[in-house]
């Protein structure tokens, strides 16, 4: 009989990610002649990420597509993707991710998980119910933070912001009643949960790239033959490629769509206030190093990023230099 890999995820049924996972499952089934198939439990029917992780350890689920917050519960190293304004562009982020992958893969392996591929949910942005462009304006708003994530709540407070720790279930009510004024989420998520109808201003500065990953428990992995594992890995890689190729485009389209439905885009990047945002993000980053983000991974990511930047700047400068020489 075939082995059905049960994979849980928060990605909603019918979302772009769900589609990519479905095709990954088809790739697996075809490539292994039906020896391995995939059943997806989407939309959090198996619970939130801590529940999913717990059930993977129990053995009820074999795999999961987790966001960085769930991954950080496996290894703190994944918090490296939660540093605000750390990357200047998605290219930069993808490059650093590539360089960090072997180390992160090893961390997952230590904890009994196999990395099949990366995922990407989009750039986290502020959605606010009052117009906020400057850091000071944002500091006046009550910002949603996850109840239980004390570290996050503390940073906001130290940065002069007004965090209000609530359960996710209280977000919609909170926006409606004014208990919170703002929350930071990826646009595609804001669209699917319709947050943007209650928080009509979009602060156009990407704060954090929300990463994810498809992981399989080693216990399930060991039930798959050497040859079939190659098929699974290949399927995971293809899902990763599809996600990386399409999500940025979908994200831009989603922002346009929400704008056509009443969302006001508040420009920040490229305006005079951008420097203020960078400064406060830098303060955040410095505070995170060693506290939430382990120093080693923080420094390694910074080194890789800076080297890439230098190389990019050198490449950009090179044609300019040859121009002037002509």
């Amino acid at each position: 009989a075939g082995f059905t890999i049960k994979m849980a995820t928060l990605s909603p049924d019918g979302s772009p990610w769900d589609g990519f996972f479905e095709s990954m499952g088809q790739d697996w089934e075809k490539g292994t002649d039906g020896r391995v198939s995939l059943t997806i439990y989407p939309g959090g029917v198996a619970g939130d990420e801590p529940d999913i992780l717990r059930k993977m350890k129990i053995g009820q689920y074999h795999a999961a597509a987790l966001s960085v917050s769930g991954l950080a519960d496996i290894s703190k190293d994944f918090t490296v993707f939660e540093i605000p304004l750390f990357f200047r562009s998605e290219q930069e982020m993808f490059h650093v991710l590539g360089e960090l992958t072997p180390g992160l893969r090893a961390k997952l392996d230590e904890k009994g998980f196999v990395l099949l591929g990366w995922g990407y949910v989009g750039q986290v942005h502020f959605f606010t119910n009052r117009r906020a462009r400057t850091v000071e304006e944002m500091q006046r708003l009550k910002i949603f933070t996850w109840a239980g994530d004390e570290a996050m709540t503390d940073w906001w407070r130290q940065g002069g912001f007004k965090p209000v720790a609530l359960a996710a279930t209280d977000i919609v009510t909170g926006l409606q009643t004014g208990m919170i004024d703002a929350l930071a989420v990826p646009p595609i998520y804001a669209m699917s949960v319709q947050f943007f109808k209650r928080a009509k201003y979009f602060a156009d500065i990407p704060l954090i790239p929300m990463m994810g990953a498809i992981v399989v428990t080693k216990r399930a992995w060991n039930r798959v033959s050497e040859a079939d594992r190659k098929v699974l890995v290949e399927g995971g890689r293809r899902a990763e490629n599809r996600i990386f190729e399409t999500i940025p485009t979908i994200e831009q389209a989603t922002i346009k769509l929400m704008a056509s439905q009443g969302l006001e885009v508040v420009p920040i990047v490229g305006t005079e206030v951008e420097e203020d945002w960078k400064r406060i993000a830098n303060d955040f980053a410095e505070d995170m190093r060693g506290k939430t983000v382990p120093e080693a991974i923080f420094d390694r990511a910074t080194a890789v990023r800076d080297a890439y930047r230098e190389q990019q700047e050198a490449e950009a400068a090179a044609p300019a230099a040859s121009d002037s020489g002509r």
């Binding site: 619970g47 939130d48 529940d51 717990r54 059930k55 129990i58 009820q60 109840a147 359960a167 209280d170």
Partner: peptide, 15 residues
């Protein structure tokens, strides 16, 4: 253990 895991999940749901 899947059963108490789910019991736990409901019992500690925020509302």
């Amino acid at each position: 253990a899947a059963i108490p895991a789910e019991s736990y999940r409901l019992a500690v749901s925020p509302t």
